[in-house]
Design a protein around this nucleic acid. Structure first.
Length: 421
RNA sequence: GUGGGCGUCGUCAAGCGGUUAAGACCCUGGGUUGUGGCUCCAGUAUACGUGAGUUCGAAUCUCACCGCCCACCCCA
């Protein structure tokens, strides 16, 4: 047997309804806020991610699905934003006027070790707003995510926000933090030693008890923001209050992708094991420019669909979206079968979901079949009914049944079905 | 890259040195009623991850490999 590659997951028929529901919900909400879908290819030039995400990040250094074909190095997208930015620039979408608002739904690929809430192929949807450096844009991005999560019934995720400043404040802060830690460098744990140069802000978040002690009293990013960035952060908090979105300031939020500036945020859940982030995003004021476009600020989020489903499941939230047919039509005997098949086609024509048996099994077996599929009604046509020009209509929910004239059946059924829905 | 746990019918799950390797669910057929869900009867399976080793004897013990899961790291 050839099995699925590690880290990949089939989305089985028993689950695909949930996926469709989630995707539709997101499309609907995104449209409500004026976002349009932008679809970009699965594969981009490796360089796009190296420059966009940052070539010192873990994602780029060791997690990309890259391959060389015909002397070009290509990579399966590890996240959604870079491709959208590339397309925005390449198609000169900025010329159509700003702000520009897009959403996407896409698989992503990262070569990592599997664990709860983490796969090598995973699915993400997200939004981006280009052209606004105003916190109204950041707040709208967060609002949309919040609106979405609430609308699918999730009410216990926490929003954590932070500002990691612009380039200027960040480099002064970085220095200050390194200066603070340098005297105790030798006492840091091994991972933190390697973080010291690469990503010193992560040291603040280390779980090692020794490191925790050592970072006591360390400088805090928020104290190093320049006036502009501090005002922006205050403004963002104000706007979140206006929208009535609860949040908590967490100076430990440091997005792992290099392109972020100022606003960084995460929606976290305690139902995800150690991968607690279900949605993450922030502002990236230089990404468009760095990738060769006109200086254009941007802000957006990405939300992990698998993680969302994990939360929903752990919360006992049932999603609508069953594939149960409306009716099973059963014909007993050759001429009744003929009538049944015609009837089924007719009913489908009027929009109902109709099953007929394709194994010519007994009535009893077909009833079981209907039950297993969750069919709401069964129509039985036997020789008796056929000669009377009628059929038996059975309601599976309450086991009631009645004779109905064939010509009245369609109308009767659609009436009953509309009552149920 | 580093740790820890686990691999028995399609699924769940007993068995822990000698068993015809339980049981339940699912599935199929049938009884009560041309008719499901409840009930009763019957039926179907090449199930001990792979390979070595220990032993008179291994699903049970040892080792290796493979696979799955979880955690570190990182992130959606």
């Amino acid at each position: 047997m050839i099995s699925i590659p590690k880290g990949m997951k089939d989305i089985l028929p028993s689950d695909s309804g949930k996926w469709q529901y989630i995707e539709n919900k997101f499309r609907t909400i995104a449209a409500k806020y004026g976002f349009s879908e932008l679809r970009t290819p699965m594969v981009e030039h490796t360089e796009l991610f190296a420059r966009g995400i940052g070539d010192t990040t873990d994602v780029v250094q060791k997690e990309m699905y890259s391959f060389v074909i015909s002397d070009r190095s290509l990579t399966l997208k590890p996240e959604g934003t870079a491709g959208v930015v590339r397309s925005f620039i390449e198609n000169k979408l900025y010329a159509a006027g700003l702000p520009a608002k897009y959403f996407y739904i896409t698989p992503c690929y990262r070569y990592e070790k599997m664990q709860k809430g983490r796969q090598r192929e995973f699915h993400q949807f997200g939004i981006e707003i280009f052209g606004s450096d105003n916190m109204l844009a950041d707040a709208e991005v967060i609002l949309l995510a919040y609106d979405f999560l609430t609308s699918v019934g999730i009410d216990d995720v926490k929003l954590k926000i932070n500002s990691i400043g612009c380039r200027n404040c960040r480099s002064t802060y970085r220095k200050a933090l390194q200066d603070f830690l340098r005297p105790v460098y030798d006492q840091l744990c091994d991972t933190c030693k390697s973080r010291f140069e690469k990503n010193p802000m992560r040291i603040l978040d280390c779980k090692d008890p020794d490191c925790k002690k050592l970072v006591q009293g360390a400088p805090v990013m928020l104290d190093y923001l320049d006036d502009d960035c501090r005002n922006a952060f205050e403004r963002l908090k104000e706007l979140l209050d206006i929208y009535g979105i609860p949040y908590e300031v967490d100076p430990g939020i440091v997005r792992g992708l290099d392109y972020y500036t100022k606003t960084a945020f995460e929606f976290v859940s305690d139902k995800l094991g150690s991968q607690s982030t279900v949605c993450g995003g922030g502002r990236y004021d230089h990404l468009v420019e760095e990738l060769g476009g006109p200086a254009t600020p941007g802000v957006g989020f990405g939300l992990g669909i698998e993680r969302l489903l994990l939360i929903l499941e752990a919360s006992g939230i049932e999603l609508p979206g069953s594939n149960a047919p409306d009716v099973l039509v059963c014909g007993l005997g050759a001429s009744a079968q003929k009538a049944a098949l015609k009837l089924a086609a007719d009913l489908r024509g009027s929009g109902m979901s109709v099953i007929t048996d394709v194994m010519e099994r007994s009535l009893k077996a077909q009833m079981k079949y209907a039950d297993r599929l969750g069919a709401r009604f069964v129509v039985v046509i036997g020789e008796d009914e056929l000669s009377k020009g009628s059929a038996v209509l059975r309601n599976m929910a309450d086991s009631s049944q009645e004779d109905v004239k064939l010509e009245d059946l369609k109308e009767k059924l659609s009436k009953l079905l509309s009552e149920i829905r």
